[in-house]
């Protein structure tokens, strides 16, 4: 690049940040996932009329806001535990990260457990998804969120193994960051489920 000659080539000028690329890519995936929930909520709005209950249980009968609030606490606390693990990551503490992830997983299991208990009790009363369009929608919307939680739990387990075995390599750190996005996102979705299904339904 001598004199007025413009710069045409930059050997080694490739300065991409692989961590930022991955977290951004994962964020995009989450936007797409958010639209899955947008579509489900739109459908929930449509199937939430009196006649969609087809004489079966209505929102009032299936939405127990106090029980759901315990779930809310579980998922929020789980996200907090995961977040604290990230604070430990900053300090480079493997044990701290493992403990935080472990706590997040336990609280996540509590959430899933409460949800399964809730579903089981509903089904025990004959309130099943096959009963009506409304109930189909209720169960599927809540279960899709639950499946995300289950998937996140599996992922947390894998990450605990990777932190233990590999330590904080670039890949592992990237995945810890993306998993945090995913896990926190489940709390955000739950806010919508809690408010628009459980609280609104309880009216």
């Amino acid at each position: 690049m001598s004199g007025a000659q413009p710069v045409l080539w930059l050997p080694g000028g490739e300065e991409h940040d692989p961590i930022a690329n991955k977290t951004f890519g994962f964020w995009l995936y989450m936007m797409s996932d958010a639209l899955i929930f947008a579509a489900l909520f739109a459908a929930y709005g449509v199937l939430d009329h009196r006649f969609n209950a087809a004489g079966g249980a209505t929102a009032r009968q299936v939405a127990h806001p106090v029980d759901a609030f315990w779930q809310t606490l579980a998922v929020f606390a789980s996200v907090l535990a995961y977040s604290l693990a990230m604070v430990k990551l900053k300090a480079g503490s493997r044990l701290g990260v493992l403990l935080g992830l472990g706590a997040a997983a336990l609280l996540g299991l509590v959430f899933i457990g409460l949800e399964i208990a809730d579903f089981a009790s509903l089904i025990g009363q004959g309130i099943t998804p096959e009963r009506s369009g409304f109930l189909s929608m209720f169960f599927v919307l809540v279960a899709v969120h639950g499946l995300h939680m289950l998937f996140g739990l599996l992922w947390i387990a894998v990450m605990m193994a990777q932190v233990a075995l590999k330590g904080f390599t670039t890949e592992v750190v990237t995945r810890l960051l993306t998993l945090r996005l995913f896990w926190t996102f489940q709390a955000s979705i739950w806010v919508c489920v809690f408010v628009f299904v459980y609280l609104r339904g309880a009216f």
Binding site: G12, T170, L177
Partner: peptide, 14 residues
């Protein structure tokens, strides 16, 4: 060449 740096120094970790 570029990213041999410590991932824990990444701004998203920080």
């Amino acid at each position: 060449p570029a990213h041999s740096t410590d991932p824990l120094l990444h701004p998203e970790v920080r």
